[in-house]
Design a protein around this nucleic acid. Structure first.
Lengths: 230, 230
DNA sequence: CGCCCCGTTGAGGGAGCTCAAAACGAGTGG
DNA sequence: CCACTCGTTTTGAGCTCCCTCAACGGGGCG
């Protein structure tokens, strides 16, 4: 693979001292570069899949990478394109939450994640808490991007109801503190569509609406199926 | 795909409300509680606006808050609803990137952000770098949520082209390393729509297409107007 | 009681999707 | 140098899902 040679050359370049005035985040990771390894990925190949154990995070040296999430039926949402100097692949979960595929021949640096974990052990607890919170927020918004980019109105509402149930439901009940307008603006729909979908979910026997903001789950499994697009 | 199922389980685990005795992030901030102040916000009132100087971050005690971003013509995207024990209002920028409004009468704790800054000064550089990277990724994905939730096809493509130009353009040129399919899956559109919009932008004299992946900007201002929805 | 806000329902229209085919460009082999 | 193939992009025609506009209903509150 000629790409590997390219990547190693890039690594050599990286380990030279950087210009002093550079405020690039890349610089801050220089201390980790000794443990880093060069990786080359050919055009179209996958660096890692959604669900793989997350052993490394990466920095792009040259080329470009796309991060994808898939729905079961193949609908795809690309969260980001990573270009030279971009970092990706960290997050609180111990598996990757998206796949990463090279869209052209790409050279990367891989940093073992345990370096990070080790370094963070020495940090104040609230710093780790902060990272956890942010990384969690990140996975939430990525989920939301799949919803907004690729799900139908029914799937969006089903996803929303289940999500609210997990966050503040009690048994098979949820009280929705927000108006239809808020739900619509959260799901990228209109008030009317939200209302119509809720009516349909009730007609289909998936939920019951005691009051307009009081949802009871009747067939949670079917709702979950719907939310994931089946 | 067992991997995908594993990933989804991880996501579910991350999103599940944490048991009270666990390492709840809220606990980790107990050390800051001495400097925290209680805040009450009435139903419908705004806690802060997009662009306000970011002096505090918050934790919800009771009630609920929505975080919004607006397009100039009033289209609204709600990024998140914050429920009891949720944190919000941090990020690298020194102004808030979204507004926060109480959707019911809400009680919060406000932590001065300078506490955070001070505490982070003592941390390893790469920890701060990591926080910067994550916080930046967060603002990017929130931008993308507005795009996916509320922008038209033309606005999406215009936004995308300008974004790529900032990241890897040279003068009035950008080379797009990805296919139409990738662009489509990033913008929540289809290949055909992306292609049609590019053709239209060329016909309208906003861009030129030397090759299918080689864009030249002719009227960048008009493109920027379009991207923001005017 | 009357007002207002919120939610629901209905009818029609349009932005973007689907399906299909043609044009194009890069690579390959004769 | 041309012919052929394969993948990508463009263009066309028709359709659908969701939006828009409009009317109606209901609950909370002065």
């Amino acid at each position: 693979m000629p790409d590997v040679r390219h990547a190693r050359a890039e690594i050599a370049r990286l380990q030279r001292p950087l210009p002093a005035q550079s405020t690039q985040p890349a610089r801050e990771f220089a201390a980790l570069d000794r443990s880093a390894t060069a990786v080359a990925v050919r055009h179209g190949r996958t660096l890692f899949h959604e669900g793989d154990p997350a052993r490394c995070f990466f920095r792009v040296i040259s080329g470009a990478v796309r991060s994808c999430r898939l729905l079961p039926d193949g609908r795809r949402q690309i969260g980001d394109f990573f270009l030279p100097d971009d970092f990706f692949g960290f997050g609180a979960a111990d598996v990757y939450l998206h796949s990463a595929e090279a869209i052209v021949n790409t050279a990367l640096v891989a940093y073992p994640r345990k370096l990070l974990d080790g370094a963070l052990l020495g940090q104040a607890r609230f710093v780790r808490a902060l990272l956890t919170i942010m990384s969690r927020r990140l996975t939430d918004t990525q989920q939301q991007m799949v919803l907004l980019g690729r799900k139908t109105a029914e799937e969006r509402v089903a996803t929303f109801l289940l999500g609210m149930s997990e966050r503040c439901g009690e048994g098979d009940h949820v009280r929705l503190p927000m108006t239809r307008a808020d739900i619509a603006d959260h799901l990228g729909l209109t008030i009317e569509t939200v209302s119509r979908v809720l009516t349909k979910l009730r007609a289909d026997g998936l939920i019951a609406l005691r009051a307009s903001s009081d949802v009871r789950f009747i067939d949670r499994d079917a709702l979950a199926e719907l939310a994931e697009g089946n």
